[in-house]
Amino acid sequence: MKPMFTSSATAVGGRDGRVVSEDGVLDVALAMPVPGSKKSATNPEQLFAAGYSACFDSALNLVARKQGIKHDGSEVTAHVTLNEAADGFALSVELDVLVRGVSEEQAAELAKIAHTVCPYSRATAGNIQVDVFTRTTDAA
């Protein structure tokens, strides 16, 4: 492997603390996700969902470019769930992939290949359950 870049962040106080990136661009309060809570803080699952959705959308667009498939835009929503397991806790992910201006088959194929390219998908393979759902609008 040839490193491209490294990012770092430091958390203090765990889920009720703060996380700050090495350059200070990311500096957010953390809080336990409590249903109905109005806390203005994030949680590790939201941060993971943000990273995964951005990475997967980039991978999808890279695959489309390499295959010469033009589309009218894409968006990926990552639903990250914290699950209670018999031996602790586990994450699961649902990726909702929207690709505009292509057929259902093309959207599904792009997402399938992106799932093999995306670093988050590669890191989670065999570790957590990840389900990918595709949809399209204005089919070509």
Results as ranks from 00 to 15, higher is better:
120 Y>Q: 13
113 I>V: 10
137 T>Y: 07
127 N>H: 08
126 G>P: 06
128 I>M: 07
123 A>M: 15
90 A>F: 01
99 V>N: 07
137 T>H: 11
91 L>A: 14
93 V>I: 08
138 D>G: 15
121 S>N: 15
133 F>I: 06
121 S>M: 14
108 A>D: 13
109 E>F: 04
94 E>I: 04
89 F>Y: 14
116 T>A: 12
120 Y>S: 13
119 P>R: 12
116 T>K: 05
102 V>N: 11
133 F>T: 10
119 P>S: 13
112 K>P: 03
90 A>D: 14
102 V>Q: 09
136 T>L: 12
100 R>P: 00
113 I>C: 06
117 V>C: 09
109 E>K: 15
116 T>C: 06
114 A>E: 02
111 A>T: 03
126 G>N: 09
90 A>K: 13
126 G>Q: 10
130 V>T: 07
112 K>W: 00
134 T>C: 10
133 F>M: 08
133 F>E: 09
104 E>G: 08
98 L>R: 06
112 K>H: 10
136 T>C: 13
100 R>H: 06
98 L>N: 03
123 A>Q: 14
92 S>I: 02
125 A>D: 14
118 C>G: 07
134 T>M: 08
92 S>T: 06
137 T>F: 04
107 A>C: 08
128 I>F: 02
136 T>R: 09
112 K>N: 12
124 T>Q: 15
126 G>I: 07
137 T>M: 15
116 T>F: 01
104 E>A: 14
138 D>I: 03
93 V>P: 01
135 R>F: 04
101 G>F: 02
88 G>D: 03
127 N>Y: 03
129 Q>R: 10
122 R>F: 06
136 T>D: 14
101 G>T: 05
136 T>H: 10
93 V>T: 08
135 R>M: 09
103 S>R: 12
108 A>K: 11
113 I>G: 06
139 A>V: 09
89 F>I: 11
89 F>P: 10
103 S>N: 13
104 E>Y: 02
88 G>I: 01
89 F>L: 14
99 V>Y: 03
92 S>W: 00
92 S>V: 02
92 S>Y: 00
102 V>A: 10
124 T>N: 15
94 E>Y: 00
